[in-house]
Amino acid sequence: MIDKFERNVIIAALLLSGLFIFSLFYALGARKADVTECLPYDKSYETARVNQIDKTTYQIFYVARMWSFEPAITYIPVGSEVDLFLTSQDVVHGFDIYNKNVNLMGVPGGVAKTTVRFDQPGVYKVVCHEFCGTGHQNMQAEIIVNYPKK
């Protein structure tokens, strides 16, 4: 017969795991949190560019290299939904948008993709958060969302 306390701890651990898993699915479903995808690589991702799909839908194809991101500055309107694609030309780089739920790895030969909405105007800093050499601390980009206001 299993010890009473051992049994209670197992039940508590299962309940807690259940709560965490439920919260994850709540965030993914009801709150529409986006999860990073890894896309099959092809050479075209090494060309940095911005595509406008419609008024507030954009694609940004970022290329990371020692020690910059391209495109370095992107202007988009408030309320834009942006598909971000990221690859690297040399080593592994990080890609973090300050105060946004975006945290990607730029891997040579790989493509990371996520979707993000910009509802607040402002200058969103992108930084490399994976040490990539002596210029790492200067490796950054900006996404400028309707700022300064017109």
Binding site: A27, R31, K32, A33, K100, N101, R117
Partner: peptide, 9 residues
């Protein structure tokens, strides 16, 4: 951390 990240969506 969960609610911090939810607030950043």
């Amino acid at each position: 951390i969960y609610f911090l990240m939810l607030s950043r969506i």
